[in-house]
Design a protein around this nucleic acid. Structure first.
Lengths: 224, 224, 224, 224
DNA sequence: AATGAATGAGCTTTCATTCAT
DNA sequence: GATGAATGAAAGCTCATTCAT
């Protein structure tokens, strides 16, 4: 037994191999997708024997659950510092900065998250894990919505929009873009990605409706 | 074209065995996920021999692609008719109608499309198919962007937004929502889905930025 | 019923398809090898339906036998005119000319003949066909041996060599070379092939033993 | 190197399962021909699981190649010792000894090597393997040619013949004979085979050309 | 006689899992 | 705990053959 830097007591040898396996699996999942991740590849990538996997996990699925747990755990860390930004700088800057970090994360987990959809029983188990631990993508949306709501109170965001819908749109944009980048094997430079993201934020901030002061008294052109 | 013994006119796409295979595949994909759907199971579910699959489709990937294509159904028509809607009714109505059809489609194909990401080589194969036939999700985005651009020219959409970014955002919203519905096994009533979609469209139309002071006293332009 | 130019009575329609199938099979056998020749490819190459094959042949093996019969039939035609050359021109010229024709033939049938060895039961059936019709590669050897024997009688070939062994060597050289050309995918120009063949013939004509008149009275250097 | 429980020293090539597979394959290849030899049958014949085959060989082709390599056995050694025979005993004896070993090898591999020609893609794969490892039938020809050249320098072989052509002819003779033995299912006693080989060597040594008049009265130099 | 969709056994290969060392 | 050879059940796919038209 030993105590790690985090102060957590753990059996070192056990966790060494266990962690190596989890990290190797995550790396492979990201690179090749679930269907191409075999126990043999995992063992090789982790630098341990194939049989060792079964000392630490009941079967392959349990190893997978461990990876999902760990990946999902990171999910809302991305948005962690957002509440501290309320009222600071401009809303536009805050959103851009946050979504930039979100996108980096989203781009990395697309292959893992999507892989879950290839196996309904794996997806169901993931659902349970998220529910048990109170995590999941909906949490990120919630955090972002809370931020927008706080800015609404400060009058820095329009009062009549639905923060939940806006937050969903913002995160959806990043995830969808990440998926298309993977699907189309697009090579996007950081600068282009940044520019793309900026346009998205600006579009959502200004809205699609024409805003012509002179006409604001006449009947709205896109009313319903 | 050919006439069956029943006197029913049918074209190639109505082939009986072919249809049985596509429908069986869709059923299994939704129920079990791609990783658990084998050619053997598909054939049994369709009530045909395994070899028949390879008479009608070059390989499993092509069958999958046929399922996606068939699922597009209504959405494809809605998308095609979108250019005709330019200047008609309100922008809000047109977007809601289009996104409604999009969401129906997206909800159906999430389990299939996401499954592709579980296998990088299948993803690459899909990329090829799309590239050969000049199709793919980016086409839907493009069609929607063209529509927005046309409305921009008519002054029914703000001149300074990026149609591409706005179109991406709108479709991303639906896809992301569909993914979450599947992941969380949410049971969403059609009415709730409709309401949700309306909020999303409204949010994007009005934008997050607070309206200028002069207007903030008048009734909101797109209140509900 | 009709009579062909060869004076053979045959049902034209039957033989048309039958011949198309045999020729298509031979072509494919040559190009792809037995393992890659499927009934589907044969039918397509012949321009008939797959089922038609079974109207003319009991099964695939029977079609193959027909091809082998036809190919083997050509086997000794190659050496047909050789008996007429006895005593004409030089032995060297006659051999070169004959082996040139033999090689062209051998190069073409290597893939077919070798394919037979991939299936012992096919090889056994071929053995029967050859035995029934009195054909086969050994006949070519025999024809060449008879020629050499005849030249021996005229004193144009050494009296103390075994015609059978010499004939075997000559034909073996061509066949072996043809096999290596196929195996190594060598591209040999007609000129190079001709040169190669000439050296072979010359080597066999002169023999490996040193022939130094002055020493012919001393003990032979390579006697036994 | 490793020592088994029996205290037997063994190296990698002596691996038990590996050897069982190679021997089973050779047996089946000889009995049924490549077209009828499946991985299933090989595993059953070897008494191991089908999957074991893929632990020891990358694919079926590599197993086949291992069979060929193992079959070379004695012949390889004889070929290697050939350079040491230069100037030793008589050329005739050396050739007979070498070709005897060659024929034993050739007779065994005819069913395998010929089978390769039944599948152009397998033939191409073989070509690659040979090219990678710098081996192949042409190497045997080359070694024999080098030997003949060395004997030429010693005056024990005629100076004006082409060693390459002569070496090719000698090995071709054995291969062709082996092919005919298989095709015609000839049962040849070792004594008859020996005699046949002797005649072939003698024929090539003396050549077909009639000896010059001056000598034709003396006893033949290599009579029997 | 000719067609070609349909069949289903069988192919090579993969891979999660076990177990003697 | 760790190892990695061995297992054997599937996987995707092929193909000779049949049969209703």
């Amino acid at each position: 037994m030993a105590v790690t830097e985090d102060g957590v007591v753990q059996d070192i040898t056990m966790n060494k191999t266990r962690q190596k396996l989890i990290r190797a699996t995550e790396r492979l999942l990201r690179r090749d997708g679930l269907a191409r991740v075999t126990t043999r590849k995992i063992a090789r990538e982790a630098g341990v024997a194939e049989g060792a996997l079964y000392h630490h996990f009941g079967d392959k699925a349990e190893l997978l659950y461990a990876v999902v747990q760990q990946s999902m755990g990171d999910f809302h860390e991305v948005l962690e510092s957002l509440p501290l930004q309320v009222g600071q700088r401009t809303v536009c800057e805050n959103l851009e900065h946050t979504l930039q970090a979100a996108f980096d994360f989203q781009f990395r987990i697309v292959p893992i998250v999507c892989s879950l959809y290839a196996d309904q029983s794996l997806l169901a188990r993931t659902r349970e894990i998220m529910s048990e631990r109170g995590i999941g993508p909906q949490c990120s949306v919630a955090v972002l919505a809370v931020y927008l709501q706080a800015e609404q109170r400060l009058g820095r965001v329009a009062a009549d929009i639905e923060p939940q819908a806006a937050a969903g749109l913002l995160l959806a944009g990043g995830f969808h873009t990440a998926m298309l980048d993977h699907l189309l094997a697009r090579e996007v430079t950081p600068a282009a990605a940044r520019q793309r993201l900026r346009e998205t934020v600006r579009t959502l901030l200004t809205g699609l409706e024409p805003r012509i002061a002179a006409e604001s008294f006449s009947a709205p052109m896109t009313g319903r």
